[in-house]
Amino acid sequence: MTEPLLVVSHLHMHIGTPRGAVRAVDDVSLAIEAGQALGVVGESGSGKSMLARAIMGLLPPRAARSGSIQFKGQDLMTLPVKEQRDLWGKQIGMVFQDPGRSLNPVVRVERQLTEGMRRHLGVGRSEARTRAVRLLDEVGVPDPEARLGNYPHQMSGGMRQRVMLAIALACEPDLLIADEPTTALDVTIQRQILDLLRRVQTSRGMAMMLISHDLSVVAGRTDRVAVMYAGQLAETGATREVFAAPRHRYTHALLDATPTLHQERHARLRVIEGSLPDPTAPPPGCRFSQRCTAPVEGCAEGPIPMESVGADHRVACLNPAGAPDLVVAGGSSDGR
């Protein structure tokens, strides 16, 4: 496919607050090819969830967006509401963090699962039911026939997230946006859901945007990754390369601050000093510059362009962390 499935260009989303406009998403550009999985990672306040909401058009109160969001050549921001509705759920599916709250508590699984199919695909009641059983089976829900009659509260968190995924997949979307889909789940259940997401994504040839605060959640399951900080992209590239040789000072510091399973007993963790800049009045240059251990002249003034540092690796940093061998010498790529 020549044209990427989703192209986001110069997307801004600002939210009005009593203290001024919060620049939640500030000039973000990225693309997802058909069938590709893109991970978006960042800590709280990075704007990763707001980026997803801006793409989905689920704006918080008093928010406005600008830029362009091209999906299959159509601009989602200028598309009439009626046509947008045809797109959502049908060609773009969504899964959120809290399956307990995004499912309707007083409606049985069957209706929540078949509603979209009947509306978007125009299938009849019995056909929709057959498909629903097949979907639940695909996402690993045991005894799917019986589960159709359940209410959400009768299922465990992992089961509810499987049902959410089945609902998102019901109309065979080309793009799945999963915002922190496993954050509320235990590790062994998280593992099951992550395996399932990747399996479904590759077997259906569907594109996926996987948003997480946890770098390792994204690492093994995406083709490309975008690291966000304070509303902007810090680094994008092939997932393996970004994790093996992070170039942005923020990505580097974040990986160093994350304890691993091979951590030495009582070893001190590297900390990132300071805190996020004020989201209503971010500094003009690099937003990480005040916490950065290696700032150079120009970092504070900006603007900082996204520069290519590899075949598929771009970074917004004037003094990127060393080449891969230097990273090893610094002792930070151990075990990751």
Partner: peptide
């Protein structure tokens, strides 16, 4: 063993070092 195998690992091929645990609590 299963708990350790369920921790996502950036350096493993599919992100995990061992098989998944089946079922729910």
């Amino acid at each position: 063993r299963a708990l350790l195998d369920s921790v996502p690992q950036p350096d493993a091929v599919d992100g995990f070092t061992g098989p998944a645990l089946e079922g729910d609590l």
